[in-house]
Design a protein around this nucleic acid. Structure first.
Lengths: 254, 254
DNA sequence: CGGGTAGTTGAGCGCCTTCAATCGCCGTGG
DNA sequence: CCACGGCGATTGAAGGCGCTCAACTACCCG
């Protein structure tokens, strides 16, 4: 795992002009993440480093001592069962925290693997606790991050429990694009950094089903493939894709 | 099969590795919950009260101001979608916290409904924050509780993604019994406080499937119904039920 | 007794999986 | 240069698991 330059200015702020669902809410969120990072930097001066796709930030079972915050890039969280099969249990983007699940047992509960070149800020947990005691805003920030994670996990569970395959995949794409939008990135053109098998794993489907659903969404004009790579997906109408979530019907089949 | 003492499990030291009624780990956990409650009481003197089955502790959308800790009883967390259908997103027992998901937005993300007569300890969130700043152990306790919730949500997601109906229901029963065991309660005789429809809702199955799976588990001698109520379930061999989780095969069908 | 709720069980269907074939891409090595 | 193999993705065909629809029972409470 590289620890090269810590300056890594990420060129994110292309920005809010392109954001679906109202740029004001999105840019507010962008600002909020920036403020949070600034607060972190001021109170804890976290170690920064760049990691690359495939790099492992921590592994299941490793002693928990640090938390991480993503300044850019994206990560997947991988839970490996004793029988050896893997389950993707989370996806993380700029502003998200990594490692919360390790606090309870004192050892990490999953693997954290970069899906793209990313800048990670790392802070010692004991230092964080101490800083939280002195800076109430910092404590509130940490609690909000954990609370958000709990909320999103529940939404994911609900999707798994209630949505058929088509809506599940559509929701997945919509959420991914929404995650980027809230961070000020473009959403008309998203680059999934997962194979069909990984998407299926994350959604409780087989890779074939994912592939078929994507083809169906293309036929329904809700998405389009980039001609270069079939992992790059165009979303002409962000809202339409979202509304498909609730109405799994009304797709021209066949 | 009955053991009158509260150390419900006898010949299973092996189980101590996982989620045992294995007495040592279980009683350690009981002790830990007791210590946590004691610390809470010492630092915050929370308001206690008794609620009854069906009582609502908080509702979706209500302003978030308090957190709650269960001293006894059990709760369900209910998420209601805009279209009106409900999803059970969590089950809570003694020692569990309620309300974490409301922190992020400042309003509660679900309904919390008692499934049984329960004793609830309530504390103001702002008071908790303040107390956390002064008492590091309290802050650690809160973080551990949130971390545990994240972990358990992920396990639930994994179950939804990977297990077929039979294993899902078996895991549900096993986990429920395990939750009781970790709290020092008997596990050979558990009383589900959910209808078949609610179990199905929680597990992403229909009530008919739940009913059929339970009948199958009875035929396989992994569980037995109490003759009084079909919601009360005997678990003759806790371990066997657990091992069924991983091997969904090998049940005498028909 | 009648009505309502909870639960069980059967029959048939449909969505998703399983199995399999094919295509395109890319890096390697003859 | 092209052949080859591997990986990712797509698509078809067939089968099965779980859902839908429905009937029936048990139990509680008026």
């Amino acid at each position: 795992m590289h620890t090269t330059s810590h300056t890594a200015v990420q060129r994110t702020d292309v920005m809010a002009s392109r954001i679906p669902g109202g740029s004001s809410a999105a840019s507010a969120h962008v600002q909020r993440i920036a403020d949070e990072l600034k607060l972190l930097q001021a109170t804890l001066n976290p170690a920064r480093r760049i990691v690359h796709a495939g790099d492992v930030l921590y592994r299941y079972g490793e002693r928990f001592e640090q938390l991480h915050v993503l300044n850019s890039g994206c990560f997947k969280l991988l839970s490996v069962s004793e029988s050896g099969d893997e389950q993707i249990v989370g996806l993380k983007f700029r502003g998200d925290w990594l490692g919360f699940s390790g606090i309870a047992r004192g050892s990490h509960a999953c693997d954290a693997i970069a899906m793209d070149t990313s800048e990670v800020w790392t802070l010692r947990y004991d230092a964080l606790l101490q800083a939280c005691a002195e800076e109430p805003r910092l404590m509130a920030l940490v609690h909000e991050a954990m609370s958000s994670e709990i909320m999103r996990d529940r939404e994911a569970k609900t999707a798994l429990c209630t949505l058929p395959a088509d809506a599940r995949v559509a929701t997945f794409l919509h959420d991914w694009a929404g995650s980027l939008a809230m961070r000020g990135l473009r959403t008309d053109q998203i680059s999934l950094r997962l194979t069909r098998a990984e998407i299926g794993n994350y959604l409780g489907l087989t890779l074939e089903t994912v592939s078929r659903v994507l083809s169906r969404l293309v036929r329904a004009r809700l998405i389009a493939f980039n001609e270069k790579s079939r992992r790059d997906i165009c979303i002409p109408d962000f809202q339409a894709l979202g509304s498909f979530t609730s109405r799994p019907a009304a797709v021209g089949l066949h």
